[in-house]
Design a protein around this nucleic acid. Sequence first.
DNA 1: AAGATTGTTGCTTA
DNA 2: TTAAGCAACAATCT
Length: 286
Amino acid sequence: MPELPEVETIRQDLKKKILNQKINKIDIINKKSVRNAADIFVRALKGNYFSEISRVGKLLILHLHPGNKFLLIHLKMTGQLIYKSKQGMVAGGHGSEPDMELPNKHTRVVIELADKTKLFFNDLRKFGYLEIVDRARLEKIKSKFGIEPLTKDYTLSRLKEIIKKRKAPIKAVLLNQNLIAGIGNIYADEILFAARVRPDRTANGLTDKEIKRIYENGNKIIKKAIEYRGTTFNNYVDADGKRGNFMNFLRIYSKKEGEKCFRCPGNIIKVKVAGRGTRFCPKCQS
DNA sequence: AAGATTGTTGCTTA
DNA sequence: TTAAGCAACAATCT
């Protein structure tokens, strides 16, 4: 599940690889993975350059010049964006197998650059998408996202404001992209465990102290997860096809029901909160 | 072999 | 008008 740290890792990687290279050829293997009509999609890309790569929440934004359009890429649950610098192999693979051949059976779109290097969009479950938008539509999409962790907008007082207005479970608030951008199921569980707050607590019932713990641990965990290049639980890989390293720091998402808590003598339980599988320790999270 | 998995949208209900 | 909850989507794994 690529969340903010995983998408940010890919963004930083790709920035070093694909900027200012002319786009030569587009291969749409799965039509459904592209939200535009094929001819419009191809025309917007071909002959242009990627001049910048930005991100909002889990959404990647590749800026196109001179066309002044934007390529949005959302990986949803199983998307991968792998850059192959020469014919043959990449460093790691889908899951753990090394030296993965590309394209493979999950490759949905291929973008070829002028020097014959290629960017592969793989997506096992076909939920992810690519879409060309103009600046007006981009701004409209961006405006719907909530505050972005690790930016100036993400302050304790803004977070308090958001949380105290909601009566949904706190986990639902953390997952709501319109309120806070970029947190998914893994980091929501990790942040709430670190903050010692039960995921099913009603948001507007949290104390200032608890919100502060969510704020501080949220910052800390997301920063560290980026530093360690994300979490590979199922099939996330970076732009080189390599796995992340944050799995070693997971304290709760990686636990099974009944396993001992990382922090106290309690046992982990698994329930559904906000429609998602949710692990927590009923003894030290309250 | 049914149920779980997960991010987002869109529908329904309150 | 807004929020909350949930089915749907695809494909695979248990």
